[in-house]
Amino acid sequence: MGPVPNVTRADVAQAARNPLAFIAERWTPTQRTVQRAAFISLAMTVVIVVTGGAVRLTGSGLGCPTWPKCTEDSLTATSEMGFHGVVEFGNRMLTYVLCAAVGWAIIAARSQKPMRRSLTRLGWAQFWLVMGNAVLGGIVVLVGLNPYTVAAHFLLSSALIAVAAVMWQRSREGDAEPRPLVGKAVAQLVWFLVAASGLLIAVGTVVTGAGPHAGDSSDVPRMNLDPVGLDWEGVTKLHAVLAWIVVTLAFALWFVLKAVDAPRGPLARTRDLFLILLAQGAIGYVQYFTDLPEILVGLHMFGSCLVWIAVLRVLLSLRERPHPATELPAQADDSQLSAV
């Protein structure tokens, strides 16, 4: 049996007062550990978005009809609630898994030496976005799956994905001043691409909110587009036009990067984005012409997450932040060596 650690009363008080600092004093994660923690946090964010879509597509949106409890008398789903209760309650439980992943990312970032405050702040930003989205998810249930609150729930998840993607990228680079790898005109083109992609996702939530998959039953109201003179077909076509704009911008960016002989990083990220966009577009057209089967709608939601991550990776690839050079011990000159 190994020796018992000598834990003093001061250690207990410090751990209670500031547990993150207590852990950081006693553990230094490797760079790879921090990167993995950031990636797991990003992956779990995508998982909970996709499973949230599965809740809606299986009609389980009100499987737990109240919040924060599943029923007025039970915190968990009961056997009487059946399949829909299990699906909805399971998605709620995944929020705790996501919180654990984000917490692990915060601890790893805080414990890195030297401490990187910018990375830790990104972790805390994820935490508060998760908390805000959990509350908004409860509001979605309490208002009977109002499509506007459902759209806001997805958009806040997109913001969470953005922060998680930035943290993952920042965990793989240093804290030096960013050095641009492309010219200002190319960077402006990428910002147009980011803005168009954000608008594409926002309009996609309107397509969902006006479409047939209400999340529970046909009694759930859908978005009323009459005041702006749009029906579901019209807003779907607008979504398709925006998708083609994003594809065109991605192709134009790749062409410009080739023309200016840009580094491999931006070129590779733009190529990846273009391929993801083509796959996402194919799924979108197939689901439109096949009356929106649930499995394809779910794949399209997953694809929208990948598109958003790929767009952000293109943006972040336009600059580099090298790690600080490790100082090597000064080598002795020949006279010193001969004197030894």
Rank of each mutant, 00 (worst) to 15 (best):
I107G: 03
A77S: 13
T95V: 14
G103I: 08
D73S: 13
A101N: 06
M81Y: 03
N91V: 06
T78M: 07
H84S: 07
E88G: 00
A77E: 05
G82L: 11
E80D: 14
C99F: 12
F89K: 04
Y96P: 00
N91W: 06
Y96D: 02
S79P: 01
R110V: 10
F83T: 10
R92H: 07
E80M: 05
E88F: 10
G82A: 08
L94C: 09
A100P: 00
R92F: 05
T78Q: 12
S79H: 07
A100S: 09
A105H: 07
Q112F: 13
I106D: 09
N91H: 13
F83C: 00
T95K: 06
G82Y: 08
L75V: 05
R110T: 11
S111D: 11
G90R: 01
Q112N: 03
T95R: 07
F83N: 02
S74G: 02
T76D: 14
D73N: 13
Y96E: 00
G103A: 11
Q112S: 10
A108P: 07
F83I: 10
T76H: 13
A109Q: 04
I106F: 10
V86D: 03
M81D: 02
E88A: 13
V102I: 15
L94T: 01
A101R: 03
P114A: 14
A101E: 08
K113S: 15
R110N: 08
T76S: 15
E80S: 14
A105S: 15
A108Q: 10
A100T: 09
A109D: 10
F83D: 02
A100E: 03
N91Y: 05
T78W: 04
S74Y: 11
